Amino acid sequence: MAEAPPRRLGLGPPPGDAPRAELVALTAVQSEQGEAGGGGSPRRLGLLGSPLPPGAPLPGPGSGSGSACGQRSSAAHKRYRRLQNWVYNVLERPRGWAFVYHVFIFLLVFSCLVLSVLSTIQEHQELANECLLILEFVMIVVFGLEYIVRVWSAGCCCRYRGWQGRFRFARKPFCVIDFIVFVASVAVIAAGTQGNIFATSALRSMRFLQILRMVRMDRRGGTWKLLGSVVYAHSKELITAWYIGFLVLIFASFLVYLAEKDANSDFSSYADSLWWGTITLTTIGYGDKTPHTWLGRVLAAGFALLGISFFALPAGILGSGFALKVQEQHRQKHFEKRRMPAANLIQAAWRLYSTDMSRAYLTATWYYYDSILPSFRELALLFEHVQRARNGGLRPLEVRRAPVPDGAPSRYPPVATCHRPGSTSFCPGESSRMGIKDRIRMGSSQRRTGPSKQHLAPPTMPTSPSSEQVGEATSPTKVQKSWSFNDRTRFRASLRLKPRTSAEDAPSEEVA
């Protein structure tokens, strides 16, 4: 009796068929016929556990003709996506030579605008209408194809895939403007070719909807975003200037109206006075309405000098805001240009540092100066060695804690006790272990408590650290204090090793 083939788990290929790579489910599931010992083939499952149809090819690079078809379809799909992405970037994010197409579109729109203006002049109306009709045909074809291509290429973005995504893309403001202008152009052409009475009025009214094509030149909205950011950044200043200017306008108009309503027919109503105030304070000055009385002229002159300053403030605020924003954008561009080279330089330096163990090129690091100058660790070890030599091999803490019996001779020589300023008595072995921070803190506390006492003391002649007598400086308080830590004499004296002298005989010792 033939044995059933062993159940295979995992992703390994079956024996005897090495080139074939078959994806098997996580659990080997066989058909009921196979479990019962029949000759049925096992049921194939996909990666998600769903059964595959009987005629479906197995996924994998070596699955025969199905694999070749899959490779061809995958390559075609990649080319399709690449083309779609390229078209989308050309239309929505132009760079380099892609601006040539947008310059061509701008020339078409500008020519249409010029011809629309010439069509309103009686001398050039006939020729402009003929040229404009031909140009409209060209623009309908160009913009119609462009609109379709834009909607198709938007599928390269995830949020615009599918018919719902394309509809979302078509609802964008600039796409809506394109659609309105396209419909208006078709209506103008249809009305112009019919030759009816309505054609002339339709051409004159709907052609100027094509002015909206100038708005579509900035599809990404960079200028509007820049203007919005400047207004938002200086909103408080703008609101303040406009508010005060509006108050000056209504008060000036009302007072001039009261002064001129009886003697001047131009100011017969408050609305006429508001019109005069707006034209005057905005420095336009049509001259259609002028005050005639001396009181009205004085009020107009005073409020004009006051109001023009507030009406001119928004222009200066926006101008300075634009300058600052442009400078910030230039700085951001320079930062973006330098970020990648800086990151590459840091990575290269780290690779060199991690692979080169000698690091002989590091001549400006802490390790280099640590090898030249005595390190703080060596100074600490030197302090501890000196203290243990004086205390008979014991550390200062051990000397303080060691009990001394009554009447027993002390094995240590008597030492002079010292007192730290602002604290109780402490171990004499710690007097010379006072660090730089303690010395600086002690000097600052003395300056806070009594700076007036220092200038009363007789001035001391500054001497070099080499000429100081070591026996005289029994305490860190003898170090000359200065008002600034930048004094080199104080810094050098604080680094010197001060020996400890006994109370009975204080021989001067120098520590090399």
Results as ranks from 00 to 15, higher is better:
1 M>L: 15
28 A>D: 13
34 G>V: 14
38 G>W: 13
43 R>S: 15
47 L>F: 09
64 G>R: 15
83 L>Q: 03
84 Q>K: 13
87 V>D: 10
88 Y>D: 11
88 Y>C: 13
88 Y>S: 14
91 L>P: 05
92 E>A: 14
96 G>C: 08
96 G>V: 14
101 Y>C: 05
101 Y>D: 00
103 V>L: 08
104 F>S: 05
109 V>A: 06
110 F>L: 02
111 S>R: 06
118 L>P: 09
123 E>K: 13
132 L>P: 11
138 V>E: 07
140 I>N: 08
146 E>V: 05
146 E>G: 02
146 E>A: 04
147 Y>S: 09
147 Y>H: 10
150 R>P: 09
150 R>W: 14
151 V>G: 12
152 W>G: 08
152 W>R: 00
153 S>T: 06
153 S>F: 06
153 S>P: 08
154 A>T: 14
154 A>P: 12
155 G>R: 02
155 G>V: 02
160 Y>C: 04
160 Y>D: 10
162 G>V: 04
162 G>R: 11
163 W>S: 08
165 G>D: 04
165 G>V: 02
168 R>P: 07
169 F>L: 15
169 F>S: 00
170 A>P: 09
178 D>V: 06
178 D>N: 02
181 V>E: 06
185 S>P: 11
193 T>I: 13
204 R>L: 10
207 R>P: 11
207 R>C: 04
210 Q>R: 00
214 M>R: 01
216 R>P: 09
217 M>R: 06
217 M>K: 00
218 D>N: 11
218 D>A: 09
221 G>V: 07
221 G>D: 05
222 G>A: 07
224 W>C: 00
226 L>Q: 00
226 L>V: 01
227 L>R: 00
227 L>Q: 00
230 V>L: 08
231 V>D: 03
232 Y>D: 12
233 A>P: 03
234 H>P: 07
234 H>R: 06
234 H>Y: 10
235 S>T: 10
235 S>G: 08
238 L>P: 04
239 I>N: 06
240 T>I: 07
240 T>N: 15
241 A>G: 04
241 A>P: 06
242 W>R: 05
243 Y>C: 03
244 I>N: 03
244 I>V: 06
246 F>Y: 03
247 L>Q: 05
249 L>H: 00
250 I>S: 06
253 S>F: 05
253 S>Y: 01
253 S>P: 07
254 F>V: 14
256 V>D: 03
257 Y>N: 01
259 A>T: 06
260 E>K: 03
260 E>D: 04
261 K>R: 07
262 D>V: 08
262 D>A: 04
264 N>K: 07
264 N>T: 07
265 S>F: 07
266 D>V: 03
267 F>I: 14
267 F>C: 00
268 S>C: 12
269 S>A: 07
269 S>P: 04
270 Y>H: 04
270 Y>S: 02
271 A>V: 06
272 D>N: 08
274 L>P: 02
274 L>F: 15
275 W>G: 01
277 G>V: 02
279 I>T: 10
279 I>M: 07
280 T>I: 09
280 T>P: 01
282 T>K: 11
282 T>A: 05
282 T>S: 14
283 T>I: 02
284 I>L: 02
285 G>V: 06
285 G>R: 02
285 G>C: 08
286 Y>F: 07
286 Y>N: 01
286 Y>H: 00
286 Y>C: 03
286 Y>D: 06
287 G>V: 03
287 G>R: 03
288 D>V: 01
288 D>N: 03
289 K>Q: 04
289 K>N: 06
289 K>E: 04
290 T>R: 11
290 T>P: 02
291 P>S: 03
291 P>Q: 03
293 T>A: 04
293 T>I: 02
293 T>K: 01
295 L>Q: 05
295 L>R: 11
296 G>C: 00
296 G>A: 04
297 R>T: 09
297 R>W: 01
299 L>Q: 12
299 L>P: 00
300 A>P: 00
301 A>D: 01
302 G>D: 01
304 A>P: 01
304 A>T: 07
304 A>V: 14
305 L>S: 00
306 L>R: 02
307 G>C: 05
307 G>A: 02
307 G>S: 05
308 I>M: 13
308 I>L: 08
309 S>T: 01
309 S>F: 00
310 F>C: 15
312 A>V: 07
312 A>D: 02
313 L>P: 12
313 L>Q: 05
314 P>H: 06
316 G>A: 04
316 G>V: 01
317 I>S: 15
317 I>N: 08
318 L>Q: 06
319 G>V: 11
320 S>A: 07
320 S>F: 13
321 G>R: 13
323 A>T: 07
324 L>P: 14
325 K>Q: 10
326 V>A: 12
327 Q>P: 10
328 E>G: 13
328 E>V: 10
330 H>Y: 13
330 H>N: 09
331 R>P: 07
332 Q>H: 14
332 Q>L: 14
333 K>N: 07
333 K>T: 15
334 H>L: 12
334 H>N: 10
334 H>Q: 09
336 E>K: 07
336 E>A: 12
337 K>N: 04
338 R>L: 10
338 R>P: 06
339 R>W: 05
339 R>G: 02
341 P>Q: 15
341 P>A: 12
342 A>G: 10
344 N>I: 15
344 N>H: 13
